[in-house]
Design a protein around this nucleic acid. Structure first.
Lengths: 150, 150
DNA sequence: CAATTAGGTTAGAATAATTATAAAGAGATG
DNA sequence: CATCTCTTTATAATTATTCTAACCTAATTG
């Protein structure tokens, strides 16, 4: 929690509650899940505060907003460079700590100034493999991607 | 267009109009943009038809649904394996045809059965570099990712 | 050709997620 | 204490997407 003291952020009780829930959390929660968890111990919490706080934290670089789940925003308190493994059935997201050196050749940059990259691995998680969860259907961003496999 | 004849799909005028708009389109349009473009030439087009058709095409593997824009769904008629370069300001998405061999070591797969992967490169597009477009703010999925750079 | 069936399309309602607004609160400063 | 700034809250509004029910169309059958 110390890491938040010096980012020029007023640490209100609500923000602390959110930060406390996020700290060390590897489930990549959505705004909804954060709201649910935090309003338990903090019944006056408002949904707007969750979004406001997340937006602020994002600007300060204390959390990262994830893509990969087209249905809702998800947030990751782990701001160190890492990639993700996404279940195409239930949308569960796991961390991938493997470090890849991927460079986009200048000739392919289309004039963009590159600031970073992120790899999404797709797959079926153990639970879904046994006909488990599967709350979500619609496989996203998977077709044709198999050939990247080895 | 021939590629669509044999995927077991009834080629109605509406579907043809959508397919025609998508064909060779590299702008990764959203449902909204597709609707706007197609209802020009086809004023009776309904939004539901756009979503229905895209969902059907996705199931048939004729288009890919993209992640990378948290605000809306986007679709890519290019189903060959490729990656994307995303402007963190205006959310424009460009194709990256470079082929990367990235493999997730078995020890990092968390029991997932891997089906594919997708790299998102982040950057600032030429237009936004000159204080151009920038319709969107909120940089997504960029913090900490710089260190993947070379 | 009338009746039937199987999608497909449409308009509009309904949902879900997110964002905006306006009023109230809390803390710091002069 | 008055003022200022920022935060929080409740609620309304917006946006994107999905659902529903009625309608349409083409193919099929009798």
């Amino acid at each position: 929690m110390d890491r938040y003291k010096n980012i020029g952020l007023k640490l209100t009780p609500q923000r602390l509650a959110i930060l406390d829930f996020l700290e060390g959390n590897t489930t990549h929660p959505s705004a909804e899940e954060i709201f649910a968890a935090v309003s338990d111990r903090f019944p006056t919490m408002s949904f707007a505060t969750v979004y406001n706080t997340l937006e602020t934290l994002k600007e300060k670089g204390a959390v990262i907003e994830l893509t990969g789940d087209p249905r809702k925003k998800r947030f990751d308190p782990n701001t160190a460079p890492h990639h993700h493994l996404i279940c195409i059935r239930c949308r569960r997201i796991a961390d991938v700590q493997v470090d890849y050196k991927i460079d986009l050749p200048r000739s392919s940059r289309m004039g963009f100034e590159i600031t970073g990259n992120h790899i999404e691995f797709y797959g079926v998680c153990p639970a879904c493999r046994k006909g488990g969860p599967e709350k979500t259907g619609s496989g996203v961003q998977t077709a044709g991607e198999e050939s990247h496999e080895n």
